[in-house]
């Protein structure tokens, strides 16, 4: 029997959930596919957490609910709110350990959340600590409930269960070089981060030409609010530095 909710979802719900990152959306043909497990792997500071939060913000902005399974307890509500996430539509789960995290992810996938993000954090995850079948089970749940499951891991863990596997590498921090020229290095400002996204596996049927692309550049800029605060601080420091220089010369003059 088809329910009204099913009709609504099937007809009007888009097949992709945009991530809010243009390059990545183009690479994926529109965003994270519903009903599939998408894995993104990369080392620390490769931009994968930013991509996940961007997808979280984009999904909740449309009015859908999203869940974040965060065993590492890394989520920053203030940062997510500033990035545009509607926090009232976000279910944040802070399990203690992987086993709990998998159980929690299974539960939320079966509940009807449009997007479920499972972040395995930064630490090394031993594959002996869980059965590979867990990924197949999660992928099946995502497919059955038409949810997008986005798994973040330091390296590939989902095996054959993932429909799309992305890898983020060659990450480089961007520093405000103008500052570096005129200021001590300690007063340079962090501008953002760039990384190269590579599609390592894609079982999604090619919808258009963009799907043939295998790599894309991921450019992430620091939140304007943080940047503005640091700019203010930089101006203060500049003022203090000038005052100190002035005071120093005055003292020398007085001593002389």
């Amino acid at each position: 029997m088809t329910t009204a909710a099913g009709l609504s979802r099937g007809r009007f719900a888009p097949a992709y959930l945009p991530t809010g990152c243009e390059g990545l959306d183009r690479l994926l043909g529109g965003g994270l596919p519903r009903g599939a497990l998408v894995e993104m792997s990369g080392r620390a500071s490769s931009g994968r957490f930013s991509v996940a939060l961007s997808a979280l913000a984009a999904t909740t902005e449309t009015g859908e609910a999203a869940a974040l399974v965060d065993p590492g307890d890394h989520f920053d509500p203030q940062g997510a709110a500033a990035a545009g996430a509607d926090l009232s539509r976000v279910l944040w789960l802070r399990p203690r350990g992987l086993k709990m995290a998998f159980a929690a992810a299974e539960t939320v996938l079966a509940t009807g959340f449009a997007l479920v993000i499972l972040d395995l954090g930064l630490a090394h995850v031993s594959r002996r600590r869980f059965d590979d079948a867990v990924w197949l089970r999660l992928a099946r749940r995502a497919r059955f409930h038409d949810a997008a499951l986005f798994v973040l891991a330091p390296y590939r863990v989902t095996g054959v269960a993932a429909r799309i596997v992305l890898a983020a590498d060659a990450a480089r921090a961007g520093w405000n070089r103008a500052c570096l020229d005129h200021w001590p290095q300690s007063l340079s400002l962090l501008d953002g981060l760039s990384a190269r996204l590579v599609v390592e596996k894609n079982l999604e049927k090619t919808r258009d030409m963009h799907m043939k692309e295998k790599t894309s550049l991921l450019n992430l800029s620091l939140l304007e609010a943080l940047q503005a605060g640091k700019e203010e601080r930089k101006i203060c420091l500049e003022k203090e530095e000038k005052e100190r220089e002035g005071a120093g010369s005055a003292l020398s003059a007085f001593g002389r």
Partner: peptide, 11 residues
Amino acid sequence: PRTGRGLLSVR
């Protein structure tokens, strides 16, 4: 949704 923001987040 808004697109193309690409904000860097902090863990």
